[in-house]
Design a binder for these strands. Sequence first.
DNA 1: TAGTTTTCTTGAACTGGTTCAAGAAATGGG
DNA 2: CCCATTTCTTGAACCAGTTCAAGAAAACTA
Lengths: 190, 190
Amino acid sequence: MISELTAHIEKFAPLPEAAGDILPAYLERRSYRRKDLLLRAGHICTANYFIIQGCCRSFQVTEKDTELTNHFAIENWWITDYFSLESGKPSEYNIQAIEDTECMVLYRDRQDELFEKLPQLERYFRIISQRAFAAALQRVTYIFGNTGEERYDHFRQLFPDFLQRVPQYMLASYLGFTPEFLSRIRAKRG
Amino acid sequence: MISELTAHIEKFAPLPEAAGDILPAYLERRSYRRKDLLLRAGHICTANYFIIQGCCRSFQVTEKDTELTNHFAIENWWITDYFSLESGKPSEYNIQAIEDTECMVLYRDRQDELFEKLPQLERYFRIISQRAFAAALQRVTYIFGNTGEERYDHFRQLFPDFLQRVPQYMLASYLGFTPEFLSRIRAKRG
DNA sequence: TAGTTTTCTTGAACTGGTTCAAGAAATGGG
DNA sequence: CCCATTTCTTGAACCAGTTCAAGAAAACTA
């Protein structure tokens, strides 16, 4: 089932014929159950996770002891902490499966060798990182330029099916308000 | 004065000897005066700008007609709209010089050829984009996890010298509150 | 299907930050 | 050096969203 991944890569950077033989040797397929942690805060992030099926989030626990979801990832997205992954320093984030999830895992200690054999991957990760960066910037202006209620409506419009997949308290912390407030918004809608 | 740039690249991806001969042919040095726009919203972003000296910001003008600064860039940073740059679609952002600024400009239509001659640049841009992405995510949790006042204090601690370089209303819109509120915070400090 | 845990709802008091308006101070261009 | 523009300050009324607490509903587990 590496085909989902190669298909995704090809959208951004064409791969040579040989890729089909090389990639599987560097990736590990892994399954996680709902609530499993792929990365635990305080630990060093050792891999990048491509989601084949399922859904994950990365979140932080603040000093004030609340969970802040800063990222959701579904099928065909990568999730990791790039900062910890590249610096080798402990991560501040937890990465958790929200549903039972199937991943292709690229471990950091195999990455350099893989990139040497398939330099097209440098380009692929460059492009998806640039996009992810642009999206994250967009999110910040989005947060500042709209009220909580507007943010909820927008999210709902963009990802209607996704609403059913995540508990409301996670969505609330992703959208930047309390679960209570989200509950009140929904009460108004009926 | 391409040396600032090559030095920066070398921090992330070692360059071959030949780089010194190749790079200058693909980069253009340009000067901007305070308030000049490097990119105007509605136009397609055609270049990536590496700042040698000076300071820029990218900002959006919302429907509510307020400016939202989503990014500052100083010496040794790149600034662009990666989304418009790669998609060829019109940008929603303005990029503006806050001070008189010197840049090395990499135009999009020369980028692919340059990356073919110096594939190390794929790696360089991959790594800095991953970092930028991680920083942008961090910023979101930072926004949600702290009050406006805490954000100001943190910014002040991290970039004390930078405070003098930007007008308060730009900083306020970057930190996500009104200029009036920033003024009140400062009044308390004395 | 009963029991436990997790998630969602609702009310009431409260607060961080906004809005509008008007004046003061700083800056910069000619 | 002076005038025009830009930036910063201050007050008072206001509101979006929080907090705390307690109960209701759903969703797992055995």
